[in-house]
């Protein structure tokens, strides 16, 4: 287990309830994540895991009806998705969209420079940025022809997920919510992506992994494992809980609650 900081939480979610088109998805969800922690959120389909990720990132389709989210002490519900990103919240998409005609390299550079400006630091020109990028590519075992392709255009499922982690590596967020980053990955890709995430994790940032399967947690060791059901966290434990879920499924917990 990494250093769990006893100070203020990086993100604190307090009694959060959300709706989409009048349907309630998250119900009274409370969770605190401290710098240096890795949390895994598991749960059956339709339990609200992906909604949770999108709500943190500020997806406009979801309406927050109750509760709040503070991030580094600021109320993020008032912030647009782009403002949240500039504050250091990153969401890795379950289904990254394709953006034809926009090259990966220019997309990454624009995103990076936007973050740099938000931090009050200098933007990098294409040549400087390329240097910066090469290290990240190496870390994630991504070949540089990746950069000339359009964003996620014609990427395999695994390549898309790898591209999400590359973006995370480039942006160095304070909080990363990775929504089913392991789905669609073969075992080699899973290893590379997991190693990348491990390298990016440090005592100042936090990671929330949303996953269906325990196998991701063989590679990334979580400090906490939460089980989500019907829009709320119904059980919290450690790694062992994940193993138990793998063996027994979710029913026993749902019966328990």
């Amino acid at each position: 287990m990494r250093n769990t900081n006893g100070g203020n939480p990086l993100v604190h979610i307090d009694g959060l309830a959300t709706e989409i088109e009048g349907r309630e998805i998250l119900k009274d969800l409370t969770l605190s994540v401290f710098p240096g922690e890795i949390h895994a959120i598991m749960g059956p389909n339709g339990s609200g895991k992906s909604t949770f990720a999108k709500v943190l990132a500020g997806h406009p389709s979801y309406e927050v009806t109750k509760g709040g989210i503070t991030f580094s002490g600021i109320d993020v519900l008032d912030l647009s998705p782009e403002e949240r990103a500039r504050e250091g919240i990153f969401m890795g998409f379950q289904y990254p969209v394709e953006i034809p005609g926009v090259t990966n390299s220019s997309f990454l550079r624009l995103a990076f420079n936007t973050a740099q400006s938000a931090r009050g630091e200098d933007e990098l020109d294409p040549i400087e940025f390329d240097d910066y990028l090469q290290d990240k590519l190496k870390m994630l075992e991504i070949s540089s022809d990746f950069l000339d392709r359009s964003v996620n255009g014609g990427f395999s499922g695994g390549e898309k997920k790898r591209n999400e982690i590359l973006q995370m590596a480039v942006l160095e967020p304070k909080l990363a919510i990775l929504d089913e980053t392991d789905s669609g990955l073969d075992i080699d890709a899973l290893r590379v992506v997991s190693q990348g995430v491990n390298k990016l994790a440090n005592n100042d940032n936090a990671i929330i992994l949303i996953t269906h399967y325990q196998r991701l947690l063989n590679y990334i060791k979580p400090d906490f494992v939460h089980v989500m059901h019907e829009g709320n966290i119904v059980k919290t434990g450690n790694e062992k809980l994940a193993q138990e879920l793998e063996e027994k499924g979710y029913d026993w917990i749902l019966d328990e609650t």
Binding site: A85, P96, A111, A115
Partner: peptide, 27 residues
């Protein structure tokens, strides 16, 4: 689509810049 714009937004890029980038790429 909304999905593309949200994708840009989640990387800190506002709608205006996103549209301009997509259009410039397209043309």
């Amino acid at each position: 689509g909304e999905d593309q714009l949200f994708y840009f937004a989640s990387r800190g890029i506002d709608t205006e810049e996103a549209v301009s980038m997509i259009i410039n790429g397209f043309v």
